[in-house]
């Protein structure tokens, strides 16, 4: 699903902030990406969601080498990736329901086709009745849930979340992690970047990728849920 081979990244002529990164996220897996602040977690996520290009190495998404793909094809790949940004990045002039519907709208969906579905998804993340609320009037926890709904509305194959519990209280964090697990059970590959060790400890049944000073230090045992929902292990 996501494969990195000897990937390096530097900004401009600065030092490499990611060095020789090798890993593979199998389809249906659930991983945490941890490491101290500044370790390169967000940069690694940006490489996966194609906001950055690596300066060396090879990245393959859905079995396709991203460096070899034309620009238009990259957009097609992006549509298969759901992103929950660290600071939500909702559109403030759009209501909650319009924010959630945005990925479908940019794909050319008609309003009537998606209206019911978007409303259901908002209810699923616990925001039923807040369809017409604007982000500036919502709490961080509510914004986070709108961002999650926006990330999953297009039924992505991969869901990436950058510090999804960073701005919310622990109880809401647990509820959000529960949502991610539900999505994973439906077959979505999930990767959550967090520096919150207590959160990782609480969900220790999920494998961990640890980044330190730009290097992937430890890759825990990988358990994945296959398309048929059966667990299997990889070394």
């Amino acid at each position: 699903m996501v494969r990195f081979e000897n990937v390096g990244l530097r900004y401009g002529s600065g030092p490499e902030i990611l060095r020789s990164i090798d890993f593979h996220l199998p389809e249906g897996s659930f991983h945490f990406l941890t490491g101290p602040s500044g370790a390169g977690k967000s940069s690694l996520l940006k490489l996966i969601y194609l906001a950055l290009r690596p300066t060396r190495g090879r990245i393959a998404l859905f079995g396709r080498d991203v460096q070899a793909l034309p620009r238009d094809e990259l957009t097609t790949l992006r549509r298969r990736i759901g992103i929950v940004f660290q600071n939500f990045r909702l559109l403030d002039h759009f209501t909650a329901i319009d924010n959630v519907a945005l990925p479908l709208r940019i794909k050319g969906a008609k309003r009537k086709e998606v209206e019911g579905h978007v409303g259901e998804l908002l209810a699923w993340v616990g925001l039923g009745g807040q369809d017409e609320a604007y982000p500036p009037t919502m709490s961080d926890g509510e914004k986070q849930r709108v961002a999650i709904a926006r990330a999953v509305i297009g039924r992505p194959s991969v869901l990436l979340a950058d510090e999804p519990t960073g701005n919310i209280d622990p109880e809401q964090g647990i509820r959000i992690l529960h949502l991610f697990e539900e999505l994973n059970k439906l077959g979505t590959t999930v990767l959550i970047a967090t520096h919150d060790q207590s959160l990782v400890s609480r969900y220790k049944h999920h494998p961990v990728l640890r980044l330190e000073r730009g290097e992937l230090k430890r890759i825990g045992p990988t358990r994945t849920v296959s398309a048929r929902g059966r667990a299997r292990a990889e070394p």
Partner: peptide, 16 residues
């Protein structure tokens, strides 16, 4: 810039 980047990253084509 921020809005454009979000649109780009969630799959909007240049044409959109």
């Amino acid at each position: 810039r921020n809005t454009i980047e979000v649109l780009h990253l969630i799959g909007a084509r240049d044409d959109y």
